[in-house]
Each structure stands twice: as C-alpha cells, then as structure tokens.
Amino acid sequence: MFDKLLPTKKIILPNGKEVTEKPALMPFVVVAILVLTYMSAVITGFNVETIIKRIEQFFVILQQMVPPTWAYFPHIWQPLLDTIKMSLLGSLMGVLCALPLAILAASNITKWKWLSATMKFFLSLLRTLPTLIVALVATFVFGLGTVAGTVAIFLFTVAYVGKLLYEQIENANMDAYEAMNSMGLTTIQSFRYAIFPQILPNYLSTSLFCFEGNVRYASILGYVGAGGIGLLLNESLGWRNYANVGMILLLLVITVFIIETISEHYRKKLM
C-alpha cells in the first residue's frame, strides 16, 4: 500500500548486479504510532502524575467490595435470572434468524449479486453499533425492561453469527451441492443436504460462543434500563455501595464462569 510512496534505493553488488532495496516500513510505523500516542495523550488529558498520586482510590473501592454483602444475595437472584433469560432468548432467536440471512448473503447460494451484497452490508451495519447503544435506543422504542435488552442481544447475535455463517457457507465444498442441483433438487433442498451438514458443527459452536459473550454483555444492559442485573449494578454504583457491587460482580463472575465452562465443553465436542 504505502511502500510505493517510499523512496527505493539501489544496491550495486561487487559483481555488478543491481538490487532494488525494499524500503523498511517499520521505522515509519513506529514513528506514526509514537505521534498518534502523543496526540491521543494530549486529547485525552493523560497524566502519569495523576495515576501515581491517585491510583490508590481505585484500590480503595476494590477494598470496599470485600467482603461482599452476602445478605444482598436474595435481591440479586431474580435479576440475574432475568439477565440469563434475556441472553438466552436473544441468542436463540438471533441464531435462528441468522441462518436464512446468511444464506441470502452467501454469494455462492444466492444467485442475485445485489441481494447478497445488500445482505452483507446490512449485517456489517448491524455489527457496527455497540450493543449498549442499541439497547439504549431499544429502551426508547420498547420501554424500560427486559424486552429492550432482548432486542439488543438479538440484533447483535444476528449480525455476529450471520457474518461468520455466510463466510463458512462461502468456503464450503460446492461439489455435492452442484450434484444435487443437477439431480433436480431445489436450492433449499440442495442446501439442506449438501451444505448444511458441512457448516452445522461450526454453526452450533459459533452460536454457543456468541451466547457466552452475550451473558457478559447482558449483565451491563440494565445500566441503560434494559433489564437484568445491570439495573442493580447501576443502583449500587450510584449509591456507592461497593460491598453490594462486590456481591453482584462475584455472582456474575461465577455465572459467567459456569456458562463458559459448559459451553466450552460442548464446543470442544463439536470440533
């Protein structure tokens, strides 16, 4: 890309042969990174002195989180389940909707170029928006509560699984598909029997992975009013009740860890 802009140098060897030296990009990259870092530091007001002087504040809060308020547990239980339900429902529906969208976006299955290109653009557009922002917008449309969170997770899942899925479909082996097509099966039928078995393990594995991530995301969606445990997190942080925050985080870490362990177990089996 950039190497054409840089000056090249000719090296003449003692035996008369000429070699054009390829300019080294690295020094320019290093300088660019240093300049950008400096500019970013200026824009963001980065200050090492402040960190050294006041970083203990961070640990003060951490200390206040221990020990967590055990008595808070009964209050957390329900919102935590809500969070899991939200991510489960959003993931399940998202995964199911991602399949037809991915088929439409795969240029080797969809015959109309404009359709697959539009679908691809739509999916990458969906992916650009951070989940929390989508959730925020959703709270305005669907009201405060779990529906908004579910919608946000649903949209993210469609975008994420959809993209990985259409890439897999495009990389699938087409021989069997063409054979079935020539035998007179419809596009859908040929897809079902030739491509689907190839992508199924990956599809399930991607879905599980997405679900894992969604549980994490769902935990903060409550912060913008989209239901679940984030609501309590917001509340406790607002009141600076860090022992409660500690309890919520502890429960969250355990939940995420359990879900990740289960999902990882099944993903390994699928591979």
């Binding site: 090296i11 060897l13 003692p14 042969k17 030296e21 390829k22």
Partner: peptide, 22 residues
C-alpha cells in the same frame, strides 16, 4: 550497514536466489 547488506546479497547470489531477497 550497507557493507553487511551487500555481503548478504552476495551470499544469496551465490546460491542463486538473489531475486527472492525481499
């Protein structure tokens, strides 16, 4: 150094892959 680069290129020329240097 320039000298080292030349030596390296000469060595590559000796085994016939000077054109692959970069």
């Amino acid at each position: 150094t320039e000298q080292q680069k030349k030596q390296a290129l000469m060595a590559l020329d000796r085994v016939g892959i000077l054109d692959k240097a970069y």
